[in-house]
Design a protein around this nucleic acid. Sequence first.
DNA 1: CCTGAATATGAGCAAGGTTCAGTTAAGGAG
DNA 2: CTCCTTAACTGAACCTTGCTCATATTCAGG
Lengths: 185, 185
Amino acid sequence: MVETIVEATWQVLAKEGYEAANTNRIAERAGISVGSLYQYFPNKNAIVAAVQRRHHAEVASAMATAFAETAGQPLEIGIRGLVHANMQAHLADPDLHRALTAIVPAAVNPETLGCIRDGIHAQLRAWLSRYRQQLIVKDLDTAAFVVQHLVEAVVHATVDGPGPTPEPKQVEDEVAAMILRYLTG
Amino acid sequence: MVETIVEATWQVLAKEGYEAANTNRIAERAGISVGSLYQYFPNKNAIVAAVQRRHHAEVASAMATAFAETAGQPLEIGIRGLVHANMQAHLADPDLHRALTAIVPAAVNPETLGCIRDGIHAQLRAWLSRYRQQLIVKDLDTAAFVVQHLVEAVVHATVDGPGPTPEPKQVEDEVAAMILRYLTG
DNA sequence: CCTGAATATGAGCAAGGTTCAGTTAAGGAG
DNA sequence: CTCCTTAACTGAACCTTGCTCATATTCAGG
């Protein structure tokens, strides 16, 4: 049931935007009544948080796949895989991500948001440590922090951004180059 | 009067958070009635947009000052100035910026947001072009795009972020190093 | 003093998040 | 088959909040 509600919210956000994502619409799409929503979630924000968690799980999964596929290959290949996986995960459904970035900051409390990000941070840090010898950065935690936010921000700006944003392919190249030079000098 | 309203909203956001920033509270703080708000702004989103514009004007001003102070000095010094100015502009009032990042995405339409950012993008691009000879990046527009979003995202994550974020000083060092290596190889 | 145009007011409307008293459905026990 | 209990569901009603508009106030120029 929880899954049904999250899926319904996901679809409303993706197809009708965050303004249409009110509790009545979500309940209607899920085929239940408003009251039932509150049997499984304490409030609307919790529903949005669940959708956000699902989104981050997808991104984390895409990253894990990219890391696995590039295991043993040079750092540069790994970085390109990381950036590409992130971009692809967002290009898959731009409308949903536009809606999420608009609605999430106000709906999900910062602490919850922090926990959601921690998983990706840990994954990234672990991956970095595998290349430790060739890295010139000392503190892997800070490095992972900076890289994570760089990728997330630029990908979002490229996918969601208004007006003339650079081509995704070109952005991927630049971000990958930036990370490589940062890590290895 | 417009300035009074923006200032009142600024203060409510900074001192009471975005949840308290409803039209009644803003009018009360501005010493006027709700109706008068709507004589100067078409809706609440426009008020938030004005506050956001003011914030970006401050950031742009801080950047301009940093660029002016480091004119003629090596690129590395300029980059450090840029990053430091951004960090300082946000450390000045963390609560306000936490509230702004939460409320802005949903309140200000993407196109308006794009226009607000364009000023900083242009400024950054112009500054980069002064060092063109020593840069290994080809497309200054894309470079400015990536650098802008890197700085903005990491600064926000450091200032607003929940939980254990790295020290601002250390983040500044890492971001500055990242940008320098990206631009000059 | 008038007058009327510009501005200010705040009760009230509409929309959306939330609640809860009443209803239905499911699973025994007799 | 009927009754009872418990759990889940329902949706009308409530409350907050963005916004409107009929009314009130101000004030410059006759």
